[in-house]
Design a binder for these strands. Structure first.
Length: 684
RNA sequence: GGGCCAGUAGCUCAGUUGGUUAGAGCAGGGGACUCAUAAUCCCUUUGUCGGGGGUUCGAGUCCCUCCUGGCCUACCA
């Protein structure tokens, strides 16, 4: 008897939209769930929005609305995005639900009962202006060890770690105010009392990937486990702790309980019992998460479940991050792609397949290479797979499939035998292997039809049976592949089912050929990916982010940087890093304005003659007419790019550029060297 | 600093417990076909398997060492 399976994906934080980085995980999980169902395992897939914490509170405050309004809107967007990628949850809950509050109380009571909760007074920085305690990441200041400025609240680039209270000249990133050190009583869970249990559970080789077990052993389990600070004083958006008024459960306490709460919601709607799913040894529990939240899911969460008497996770599947073009996703480069933006340009099937083809069972990051994305999807899905149906279906649209399965030289049979291999790869989350194997099979199907050439047979009468047989084989190979691919490509599985007049919902269907049935008219199943669409998506994505940044000119940034507005840096973010050598290619010189004259027909230009010392002069047409009167420029010193390639302009040749800041028009500001700089001196 | 992982054809990767001339897909080159979404099929080029040392009859595969890269090191996926 197979066990029933409860599957979760990490709860996305209700503070931002879903992007393709998130989607790696949801696609991975969805594939696994669909695979389980295809194998006839009773499977429940739950998720929820993670809604609590300081970040949500601050954002709601900034937007002048309630946290509830914010998270409701975000939840709607998340659900829409997931649906757009064919991610099919049985229940999508929220950590801000009655079910969750109640369950939190239950887990809390269990911790209390075990005597694991202790009170400790700690010093924490408080922002008097914003009226809130500051999480580490909301404090910046000078590193007490190396003296580097503008470092995060808990660690410095130099590698030193500390508490925010140790920072020199700390500044609140929220308001810019100088935080005060305040003492507050927090509640802690004495995790060390569960050390033995956690040692066994993490190291027994059953529940975690080996490298994760090693990581925990090396980082945490080698020393006594620290007490876990599990409460936050008001103001905090979350659940107030019933027996500690004025204190709230830390978001990471109630978030994983959200898995249970979402399950409960589903149970209540479907007349099921929660205990069958979370308290029964007959149910496997599988969590899919990203490696950044390993710690919470592999130490705290098992500890909480253990203490509360719940079933422990069967397996925690941890994946790496998504990079694009080998780099971290970048808003500026447009590679920080929101789900919505992707869907405006591309079919989700492409993404699901590409991600599946790259996902292995380990924690390696996986890279979205946009050129590879296009060629892989087109070549594998359209060229190899869909093409089979596309080229064979029309020959049998009147006759249907042969009544008995013809001799195909063992093609179907051997591909059927490899089904278990593919299934095992899916089971182990080694989708890359599964996709490789499937494509290997597809690579045998096209040569088959090619060698039989029904389009040639058709030219001579009397070949009807052979044509039908050849197409019966080809379409059955296609159907078999469609079943193998169904967890990844649900839409194609549906379309394939329609072609055959059946529903492809059981892995076993891949093991026996379909014969003697009609074939419906072939409808185009998948368009090729156009590189132009990908490019447009990237461009859109970059534009959105630029607009968003400009609009939301952050209180965060401006406050931490004194009175200067962050606006300019946001409008024009820093360029790509360049090397010293790159920089030295640009020859900047101090120059004196020897002559400046108006160019009557030009709207923006002034003609400048710049002296570099001695007799050397350069003529430069500068777009500063609206900002400067030529007469006032003569004699002053400026900085120019002296080795710029000459450029022919309407009014003459410009031999360089003067350096100025500002967006243009009247807002142009020439840079001047300090008084003693001499024309001709290089700037570097 | 500590830890984990990786380094195999231009690119993405596969190479099971060490065993014959190291593989696939894509890209490149040549040809064929025309049923199919310029899809498909056939043929084809390319590798000091990161460097060095060692174990062995035999190493991409084990050991040592060095180099390079990625990631993690208590709340962004």
């Amino acid at each position: 008897m197979t066990k029933r399976k409860l599957v979760t994906a990490a709860l996305p934080y209700a503070n931002g939209p879903i992007h393709i980085g998130h989607l790696v995980e949801y696609v991975q999980t969805d594939i696994w769930v669909r695979f389980q169902r295809l194998r006839q395992n009773e499977t429940l897939f739950v998720c929820a929005d993670d809604t609590h914490g300081t970040a949500i509170m601050l954002r709601a405050r900034k937007e002048g609305r309630s946290e509830e309004a914010l998270i409701a809107e975000m939840r709607e967007a998340h659900i829409r995005d997931f649906a757009g990628f064919d991610i099919l949850f049985d229940n999508y809950g929220s950590t801000n639900s009655d079910e969750n509050r109640e369950l939190c109380g239950e887990f809390w009571a269990a911790l209390r009962k075990e005597g694991l909760v202790v009170e400790k007074s700690i010093e924490q920085l408080f922002d008097p202006e914003a009226g809130t305690f500051l999480a580490d990441r909301f404090v910046r200041g000078t590193c007490p060890k190396c003296g580097k400025q503008d470092q995060a609240g808990d660690n410095c680039e130099c590698g030193h770690t500390y508490t925010p209270a140790d920072l020199i000249d700390p500044v609140s990133a929220i308001s810019g105010a100088t935080p005060e050190v305040r003492e507050a009583v927090h509640l802690f869970v004495e995790l060390e009392k569960l050390h033995g249990f956690l040692d066994e559970w993490t190291q027994n080789g059953k529940h975690l990937q080996q490298e994760v077990a090693n990581y925990l052993k090396g980082h945490f389990l080698g020393d006594p486990l620290r007490d876990w600070d599990i409460s936050r004083p008001a103001p905090y958006f979350g659940f107030e702790i019933p027996d500690a008024p004025g204190n709230y459960w830390y978001v990471w306490f109630d978030a994983p309980i959200g898995y249970v709460a979402s399950t409960r919601q589903w149970c209540e709607a479907n007349n099921q019992s929660l205990s069958d799913w979370w308290l029964s040894p007959d149910t496997e529990i599988h969590h899919f998460i990203g490696k950044d939240i390993t710690y919470f899911h592999t130490l705290f969460w098992p500890a909480m479940l253990k203490v509360a008497g719940y079933q422990l996770p069967t397996k925690i599947h941890i994946h790496g991050f998504l990079t694009v073009g080998g780099e971290k996703m970048s808003k500026r480069k447009g590679t920080f792609i929101k789900a919505e933006t992707y869907l405006n340009h591309l079919n989700p099937t492409y993404f699901r397949y590409y991600i599946a083809a790259k996902l292995g069972p380990r924690l390696d990051d996986l890279d979205l290479n946009l050129d590879e994305f296009v060629t892989k999807v087109n070549s594998d899905l359209v060229g190899k797979f869909v093409n089979l149906a596309s080229r064979a279906a029309k020959f049998v649209k009147d006759t249907g499939l042969s009544a008995t399965y013809p001799d195909d030289g063992g093609l179907f049979e051997s591909a059927a035998k490899r089904g278990e291999e593919i299934a095992e790869a899916y089971e182990n989350c080694d989708y890359a292997r599964a996709m490789r194997t499937i494509m290997e099979l597809a690579d045998k199907a096209n040569p088959y039809i090619e060698s039989k050439a029904p389009w040639v047979l058709k030219k001579e009468p009397g070949n009807e049976q052979e044509i039908q047989d050849v197409c019966t084989v080809t379409l059955n190979l296609f159907r078999q592949l469609a079943i193998y691919l169904a967890p990844v490509l649900p839409r194609l599985a549906t379309q394939a089912g329609e072609l055959f007049g059946e529903s492809l919902e059981n892995w076993q269907q891949s093991q026996a050929p379909l014969v003697g049935t009609e074939i419906n008219k072939f409808k185009r199943m998948l368009d090729r990916v156009e590189k132009e669409s990908v490019d447009k998506m990237i461009a859109d994505s970059a534009a959105e982010n630029a607009a968003a940044e400009a609009a939301g000119a952050g209180a965060l940034a401006s406050a931490a940087q004194g009175d200067d507005s962050a606006e300019h840096l946001e409008k024009e973010p820093l360029a790509d890093e360049c090397t010293f050598d790159d920089f030295m290619k640009v020859d900047l010189r101090v120059a004196r304005v020897v002559a400046a004259e108006d160019v009557p027909k030009a709207k923006k230009l002034l003609k400048l003659t710049l002296g570099l010392g001695g007799d050397v002069t350069k003529t430069v047409f500068a777009g500063i007419k609206a900002a400067y009167d030529p007469a006032t420029l003569v004699g002053r010193k400026v900085v120019m790019v002296a080795n710029l390639a000459p450029r022919k302009m309407k009014f003459g040749v410009s031999e360089g550029m003067v350096i100025a800041a500002g967006p243009g028009g009247e807002d142009v500001f020439l840079l001047s060297p300090d008084d003693d700089a001499q024309p001709g001196q290089r700037v570097h």
